[in-house]
Design a protein around this nucleic acid. Structure first.
Length: 417
RNA sequence: GUGGACGUAGUUCAAUGGUAGAGCCCCGGCUUGUGAUGCCGGUUGUUGGGGGUUCGAGUCCCCUCGUCCACCCCA
């Protein structure tokens, strides 16, 4: 019997994790510069949290959750997304009175979908949430932060698409107008769209069936039905944004809690899974989940998916290798390795034994220098330092060897970054 | 959930129904205190798994697991 990961769940082996860390490092730098703090939230939550927030009728809740009853009889699930839990934590922690909250998190999410490239059943998201800011400035800052994240990662050929979904005072009116329109052209719509007219008419807008899109050419747009406040808000965002934006009136978030700003950063390099970052405003959610009315906005990105767009990060390699020649050199060589590590040098010990084997290992691990300790060196209290690139080596006293190595790597490290 | 392509050594790939192979990697030797180049030699498979057809199956059929693509959904 051979064990293997279950469908849509992948191992993070070193080469892959290096990629994730590259994304995380850039993200953390940007988030910290905007004064966002990390939170770590549960993976297991009550199922009701998601049915209430994401929406009973959404695909995520209706057919993609890993849901079970635990031994105590509680209805639980593996979180399919991060915002609901963040809002729950915000309310539970009593942070509504603690001033504006700026949070981010990194962690696994679970959705039982059919796997594809860029779509896994267990995947990691970086999420960002900001509570307490209603004005367009917050939207502009969030969009800018998302955009600079993509830019900093060197990802090319992406575009920012923006829409407004209105609010409880203007969306019902739009919805009625849309339904009226859809009823007129009902005969031209596909079966799913006809069903959605009743359950979620706005989802009809992003149907990909050609005949539907044709029928929808003259469909009313939310942007033309925004109330005064929503229209002002949307206009202010566009004026304040210093990045190229495509207005896409067909962006409809698949989660029910969004209002006003909805956006995606998309690429066409990933086939059907082209959304790299997605987010929007959810001003009603905190209240919906039992907290005091609190405006909020957030976005999320999939680590594995964005990782597909990154060029290979340089493998992290050892800087110094230690070779011990002869039994008597073994213990001193271990001490030498410890000294090198204490000085901040990334060091591997080649394990003693055959010289050929050890030098081969020193070469393979990428070390630029090898410290050689044999009976002679031990007797004289010296190290032999071999420059692996040049093939040259010299015997010197440990203190000055260390100083030179530290100096060398201090300069090469900074020139690389 | 629907439709389709694919699955052979660690890896990338071969093999008209007739003995499962090659490159790279890895290991050893030439060189027991010297790697990366060179030469010589070596290991490696229940052909994803299970059943069936056949004298004979990597190859054909069925089931199953996984990967990928499209739909769908979304990060």
């Amino acid at each position: 019997m051979k064990f293997q990961t279950i469908r849509g769940v992948h191992d993070g082996l070193p080469a892959v994790v290096a990629r994730w860390q590259q994304v995380e490092r850039v993200a953390r730098t940007i988030f910290h510069s905007h004064s966002f703090d990390e939170v770590r939230l549960p993976i297991l939550e009550q199922t009701a949290l998601f049915t209430r927030s994401v929406g009973e009728a959404t695909d995520i809740v209706a057919k993609e959750m890993y849901r079970f009853v635990d031994r105590g009889g509680d209805d639980l699930c593996l979180r399919p997304e991060g915002t609901a839990g963040a809002v729950r934590a915000f309310i539970q922690g009593g942070l509504g009175r603690a001033g504006e909250q700026r949070w981010f998190y990194v962690g696994p999410m679970f959705r039982r979908e059919r796997p594809q490239k860029g779509r896994l059943r267990q995947f990691q998201q970086i999420g960002v949430e900001r509570f307490g800011a209603a004005g367009p400035v917050a939207d502009i800052e969030m969009l800018t932060m998302a955009w600079s994240l993509v830019a900093e990662l060197g990802i090319q050929q992406v575009r920012l698409e923006l829409n407004s979904l209105g609010c409880p005072s203007c969306r019902p009116g739009y919805r009625d107008a849309l339904v009226a329109f859809l009823q007129q052209c009902e005969g031209d719509l596909c079966a799913t769209c006809r069903d959605r007219m009743a359950t979620n008419p706005m989802r009809v807008l992003d149907c990909k069936v050609a005949s539907c899109q044709q029928a929808l050419t003259d469909a009313p747009e939310m942007l033309h039905h925004l109330c005064g406040d929503c229209d002002t808000h949307f206009g202010a965002i566009q004026r304040g944004l210093d990045i190229p934006v495509t207005i896409n009136p067909r962006i409809v978030r698949g989660l029910d809690y969004y209002n006003r700003t909805a956006f995606e950063i998309v690429t066409d390099q990933l086939g059907a899974q082209g959304t790299v970052i997605a987010g929007g405003r959810y001003d009603g959610l905190v209240q919906e989940l039992g907290g005091a009315a609190t405006p909020a906005i957030g976005f999320a990105l999939g680590l594995e998916r964005i990782g597909l767009l990154l060029s290979d990060p340089p493998a992290t390699r050892a800087e110094v290798a230690v070779v011990a020649l002869g039994e008597g050199a073994l213990i001193p060589s271990l001490r030498a390795a410890e000294q090198l590590r204490a000085a901040g040098l990334r060091t591997i010990h080649c394990g003693g034994g055959g010289g050929k084997r050890q030098f081969k290992q020193a070469d393979r691990c990428g070390a630029r220098f090898t410290i050689i300790l044999g009976e002679d060196e031990v007797a004289q209290g010296t190290w032999t330092v071999r420059n692996m690139g040049e093939g040259s080596q010299q015997q010197c006293d440990p203190a000055s060897a260390m100083a030179q190595l530290v100096q060398h790597f201090a300069t090469t490290r900074t020139s690389k970054e």
